[in-house]
Design a protein around this nucleic acid. Structure first.
Lengths: 343, 343
DNA sequence: TAAATTAAAACAATCGATTGCTTTTTAATG
DNA sequence: CATTAAAAAGCAATCGATTGTTTTAATTTA
């Protein structure tokens, strides 16, 4: 489609025999243009179907009023909720959102970041991929003078603004809850330990065991069980142990917990009587499985809003340096049937 | 945060005692720059941490290489999958995505569209809100010479590029399937008839009844049952009828179907023996309810890719007028336990 | 009425990259 | 060695809006 030429302030100026600068000022409601003229300009602008060219405006003004977001996957409940939260907050401020997904690939993540830098976005919000171990691309964002906010999966080594979940504490509470319910051999399904969130969740698990005087049994801790399939395999393995666990904390996601549940059901292991299950994320479906699954709510939408508002707040300090700041949101344990050993 | 001044082609030109135009050409790999010079420029660009200012570039080039997307809700499975599909396709072409959500509100939808027009996006992709009945804002997009692609929930009256699901046919097949399973009184939970997709689904339902010689019973057709709660209420009402239905087609969503299932279970009505249930959308959870729910897959991710590719394809015809074109994707019936009356 | 003040509009430079056109330099040809 | 062709680089306008500065017009004050 050939896009017709759009109306510019020059067109308006020409038609009214005025200078473009006056048109611009009128459009920005400056006080240095006569009210009558202003009205006339506004009317003509409407007639000619004028809309400001944000490209030109932003170029001149030196900013883009745009925030870039990089997440592993757009269509994952947690992330799409965070994005919805960010959108909700940024929209009100007249900001736009450019969304990219890394697909959990380091290379794509770097590309996304570069694109956003090129776009001269004012801020980049990122939750890193599993593959991401070095942070040159993140440092690059900072070097370009772009505000950087990390959320959820953050690079600890890099001192930036961060919005995180208190994974350690919530895992601690989840495992403590299971122990209080009477489960004695709680297994752990771990996520890739490259990601700090999974390390933290493991730490919470370990602390809960320790504080409750329960020995750590390495055989009950399965590495890299972070998809439904991997968790299902892990569960088969665990339940076939001479001394199988009587509870499994799927610290990686509710999908993992679902894998556990399915295998348990298939192997005729009764949940929650013989096996307690706890997931992570409070996906919609955890409420409707039978039994319903105990899980942890991360307040994802709220998290998105927090991220956006953090940016707007920091933006105010125009000339001071960025002070690294971490906002930690405390997730909430949602206890359901899958851990109701005692009735 | 004060953003430091970024490196421009002028900085590079100055440092190398060259003209900015040569730098620009070198950066664009033009053949009219000496290879040695080109190499030098590229090296210096890297040293100075240069990145092209896309704002300036796009202003000059007259396009933004950006596609705007407006959906009712970002964090709804169907839409987030479509967006992921669009992103997947546009990313490869070096395009960016600006995402907005209307929250099912007409006013917000209009605002979103206006913002995108201001941003001078090259194309706007939209799925309209429930509230949307007039289409001035969509016409406005066209008037600004911006390519418009509607998907899923489209305004029939407006002749634009469209990517839709064949809702009529898929509903027809779903209801036919239920009838073939032996269900005799199939009820329908309708969505707001303002939206064409829900009208089409109703038509498919009606056609299935007709072609199978089954009378239409108005009492079995419930209007506006398009949330889980509304569907639950509707189900209670239906099952309390003197002559209750023996199957319910929740044409609006799987969430509705879930509402039906929960009420049926609570009322001790056996699914699928006494009541067949079919949903719409193939949400993840339909697989794991007990019984699992028969539903319709809309190929949402693929739909997103199709939308994006439609744009790129149309873009080629630079000077011809846009010929309204509709791509209809045929959804797939996924039969599961909830409609297995016969074994 | 002349001078001073203020309001309104015009002028011109700028943001950074691109591109048609011109000039300079280098290489090739007779 | 002169002439011509080709390659490489420079020049300058452009995209559209913004903004500091200057000019003009209108109003007020002495």
């Amino acid at each position: 489609m050939k896009s017709k030429k759009r109306t510019t302030i020059y067109d308006i100026a020409e038609k009214l025999n005025l200078n473009p600068s006056s048109v611009s000022r009128a459009l920005n409601n400056s006080s240095s243009v006569n009210d009558a003229t202003k009205k006339l300009i506004l009317k003509t602008a409407k007639e000619l179907n004028y809309t400001r060219n944000t490209l030109a405006s932003n170029l001149r003004k030196g900013h883009s009023k745009t925030i870039g977001v990089v997440v592993p996957r757009i269509n994952q409940n947690f992330f799409s909720n965070v994005i919805a939260g960010i959108e909700d907050a940024t929209y009100k401020q007249g900001y736009n959102l450019i969304i990219c997904q890394s697909n959990e690939l380091y290379d794509k993540e770097v590309q996304c970041v570069n694109t956003l830098i090129n776009q001269h976005v004012d801020c980049i919000v990122i939750s890193i991929s599993v593959e991401t171990i070095d942070h040159k691309h993140l440092q690059n964002i900072i070097d370009h003078g772009i505000q950087l906010i990390q959320f959820d999966r953050v690079a600890d080594e890099l001192e930036t603004l961060k919005v995180t979940n208190d994974n350690e504490q919530s895992s601690f509470e989840a495992v403590s809850h299971m122990i209080k319910q009477g489960y004695k051999r709680v297994a752990l399904l771990e996520g890739p330990q490259k990601l700090n969130i999974f390390r933290q969740r493991k730490n919470g698990y370990l602390r809960a065991l320790e504080e409750n005087g329960i020995p750590v049994i390495p055989a009950l801790m399965i590495e890299n069980a972070w998809t439904k399939e991997l968790s299902a395999n892990a569960t088969r393995q665990l339940l076939s142990l001479p001394q199988p666990p009587d509870a499994i904390f799927a610290s990686t996601s509710d999908f993992s917990a679902l894998g556990v549940l399915e295998v348990a059901t298939a192997m005729n292991v009764k949940v929650p009587e013989e096996l307690g299950i706890c997931g992570y994320s409070n996906e919609d479906f955890t409420e409707i499985t039978s039994p319903s699954i105990t899980t942890i709510d991360q307040f994802s939408f709220y998290m998105g809003k927090t991220v956006a508002n953090l940016y707007f707040q920091e933006m105010e300090n125009t000339d001071t340096m960025v002070v690294p700041k971490i906002i930690s949101i405390k997730p909430k344990l949602i206890t359901r049937s899958s851990t109701q050993k005692t009735i």
